[in-house]
Design a protein around this nucleic acid. Sequence first.
DNA 1: TTGTACGCGTTATCAA
DNA 2: TTGATAACGCGTACAA
Lengths: 344, 344
Amino acid sequence: MEDRTDKASSDKATYQVTADDVAKLAGVSRWTVNRAFKKEASISAKTREKVMQAADTLGYLPDLLAASLASDRSNLVCLMVDDFANPHKLVMLERLTRILRKHGWDSLLVNTANDTETSAALMSASQRRVDAAVVIGIQFNDSNLATAQGARRVRKLIVFARSSENPDTISVCCDDVAAMDTITDYVIERGYRKPLFLAGPQTSSAHLGRKETFLRRWSNEFGQTPDFLVADRYDARLAYDLIHGTFVDRSVQDLPDIIVCENDALAMGAVDALRYGLGLRVPEDIAVTGFDDIPQVDSPNYKITTYRQPLTAMAEGLVEILRGTADNSALNHFRGQLVVRESA
Amino acid sequence: MEDRTDKASSDKATYQVTADDVAKLAGVSRWTVNRAFKKEASISAKTREKVMQAADTLGYLPDLLAASLASDRSNLVCLMVDDFANPHKLVMLERLTRILRKHGWDSLLVNTANDTETSAALMSASQRRVDAAVVIGIQFNDSNLATAQGARRVRKLIVFARSSENPDTISVCCDDVAAMDTITDYVIERGYRKPLFLAGPQTSSAHLGRKETFLRRWSNEFGQTPDFLVADRYDARLAYDLIHGTFVDRSVQDLPDIIVCENDALAMGAVDALRYGLGLRVPEDIAVTGFDDIPQVDSPNYKITTYRQPLTAMAEGLVEILRGTADNSALNHFRGQLVVRESA
DNA sequence: TTGTACGCGTTATCAA
DNA sequence: TTGATAACGCGTACAA
């Protein structure tokens, strides 16, 4: 213990205060110090007070590294983001980091935009013993899934804000069928009859996807399946090119009367393409709907009618899953709400 | 060691492969196994090969928790974001996570939007022994700084994409004076003579801030200091309200001919306010410039003339600082470039 | 309520 | 080049 004291005086900046130091100062054992820092521990209020005071004067805080190593629980979650072009990711990151933090979890942000580095990142996260790996707004692709499962220390694979049919993953998302039904009802009620669906990246398994739901519903209602376009990424610029390229040579009567978009990023690109690429008015010539209600679509430039997911409730649901207290079956049935603006 | 084997067979999913297991299989010592995983370690190629093969069949990866604890280096960086309304944060997060990952660092994303939770988050990060705390696009405020310094395990306090005069922090940013000079030159050259500066949140110490630079430069050039407005946050909606509220009752000859904005988020709000709030044309009636070159300002709706920072180079600079190989004095002099579009 | 072995999986350091 | 000892700081389980 003497050399410890030496270190403290000789190099104060790097000296690390441990529970032992606090214990000595407070006149208790090291384990009592640790108890004082645990919420539900059998310790007398007086002793705790004494310990906390000693801890305070020494500037002691429990070391999470050592705690994780010993307890095999890291209180760390890996958030995987592969698409930084969609502002909605920022909204979700804000919500997730805030809610997770509130419940004691820290967030490791992993950039999986580059597919070759994704597996390395996932490995690295697993080496930190994250309690869960969460993909945001997408599904695990097969390669990621294989890596994650190979990295056996990743306990839970969670898909946030997206439905997933893979039995090895847990999905926290809103009910896409109900959501698209709400949008479809609105589209029909407003009298639109020639819809085009603008879809995002297609996953192999999406029986319950937004596109499928809309097409099926419309087909049931009117006996014909609407056209659709597919964008490889949720990128406004991509949507612009797609819409512009598709309709620039088309005669007026062949145009849709509404473009139903899988999310707001696509919707913004669609609006831009209609206005600036094709010289059309929104919604007078062609209406547009989005999904997500990102802050940008409330700009007077866009005023896009869209659908807002209950992100806070969903984030709280994620916490329940991390805790293991969730009734998993209920976590993919969150209900959001239609936000009506001027674009449709 | 026997019970280990038992665990492996009885509960394979949770069994953790350690260096010991690999050592046994490869017929070497545990320390040799670890050496095989270090880049520059004195180990024969043959032994390493043997070890790696054994590791592969067992699915072994070094545990970063234990490694951090023992080595006192976490290879973890804490990224602090306080403003999720500005899309530029997403761009910076993408760049930082990618470059940091490339060099072996993982990123802890901490939401510091809520001021009361900021210190708790910083504490938590320090408890994970992050190698550095990085604030993005803002300066450390006094309260954060005090917390960070109190949390002695945070080795480095770094301000990214913002100049900082605090001697306890290291700033990685572009040269704001040079940047604003470039913008000012352009504004003058294009013949604008009645500028208004739209500034973001004001920090106490900003002698070299963008606003100050512009005002001083203009004053030197034309003998009078331009008007300016201050937004509390880099929020497009706030900028809208500010511009609209300021000019709605003003007569035409009292209007500026250009609004020079501290960043793109403000510029977008300004454009919206001019067009939709005041019925003016951009740039014919009033021009606008931004800063950051976020993807959104390239939309045909905005086409904002702006200034792009060399984010990749800056992120690499951050890595040098983490490594301790940086010549710190040079890291706040990155040069960006003017991106001319149609708004000015 | 409080104190005590022992283990978590590495790294640093020294010895062989 | 390789093996061995002693940390790193805390949690679990159990005993006092």
